[in-house]
């Protein structure tokens, strides 16, 4: 069996790679379980955690296709994603999302849960939930915190996808490389810069920021998961999604 997520440690920098490239690293339950298992056993040494995706995509979001036939699966998946994002906020390590390619829906939300988001000009990011008849409720609190309530409203109600360049303009992406190769160089240098900080200073600062914005409390994310699940269960949403996967 393949590992759906892997961890590499190089001194103070750990890299967690979502490893389901044939499914654009879509978040299925096994992939989420693998990520949670890695976080459970994360050694205390590294104080920078880079999250990225194997292959061409960062993460295509929640694996909607796998849950379409099973009514009980969406709430489970959504709560699992909500927990994952909350866990990242509560980690003492500074989390860097290295958005190597498509970061869609929950995948883009996962990036927004990171402390620093890096990407490249040609990456595709965004929240097409409203186009699919579903509601980006788990990711909305993360996006509101990251870029502000007004800009988040604009992006979530518009739906669709945007380029890495545009995502950088609206501040979803903090630093942008010209292309995929450039992102490796950028990420190495940012991770090294972050790693140069003291582990205690980083942990204390991050803890304070998380306390101030309330993002370490899973209640809001869990409420979002319930809301998202309830919209997914409506006939309108199910019809639209079935049609999409048939097409």
């Amino acid at each position: 069996m393949t590992d759906f997520a892997t961890l590499d440690i190089a001194g103070p920098i750990a890299t967690l790679t979502m490893n389901r490239p044939d499914a654009r690293n879509a978040m299925s339950l096994p992939l989420l379980d693998a990520m949670h298992a890695i976080l459970d056993d994360l050694p205390s040494g590294p104080h920078v955690l880079v999250i990225t995706g194997a292959g061409k995509s960062f993460c295509a979001g929640m694996d909607l296709k796998s849950v379409l036939g099973d009514e009980n699966a969406p709430p489970k998946l959504l709560h699992n994603i909500a927990k994952l994002t909350t866990r990242l906020r509560n980690l003492p390590a500074v989390v860097v999302a290295k958005v190597n390619g498509a970061a869609i829906g929950g995948g883009c939300g996962l990036a927004c849960a990171a402390d620093v988001v890096l990407s490249h000009a040609d990456a595709k990011l965004g929240f097409p939930e409203v186009d699919l008849g579903v509601c980006p409720a788990v990711v909305a609190p993360l996006l509101v915190r990251k870029i502000g309530a007004g800009p988040a409203r604009n992006i979530l109600l518009r739906g669709g996808l945007m380029s890495g360049t545009r995502a950088h303009e609206v501040c979803i992406v903090d630093e942008l490389a010209d292309d995929r190769d450039g992102l490796d160089t950028l990420c190495d240098s940012v991770a090294e810069r972050l790693a140069a900080g003291g582990a205690n200073a980083i942990a204390a600062t991050k803890r304070l920021l998380t306390e101030i914005d309330g993002s370490g409390d899973g209640a809001l994310a869990a409420k979002g998961a319930d809301l998202s699940a309830s919209v997914l269960a409506t006939p309108e949403a199910r019809e639209r999604l079935s049609a999409m996967f048939r097409g």
Binding site: E129, V130, A140, A149, R153, L156, L157, G159, L227, V231
Partner: peptide, 20 residues
């Protein structure tokens, strides 16, 4: 925007109102 399903827009807007 009118190509997008109203129920999804409404649920998303309601949640955004609640968040802010």
């Amino acid at each position: 925007l009118t190509a997008k399903p109203p129920h999804a827009l409404a649920a998303t807007k309601r949640w955004l109102n609640e968040l802010a």
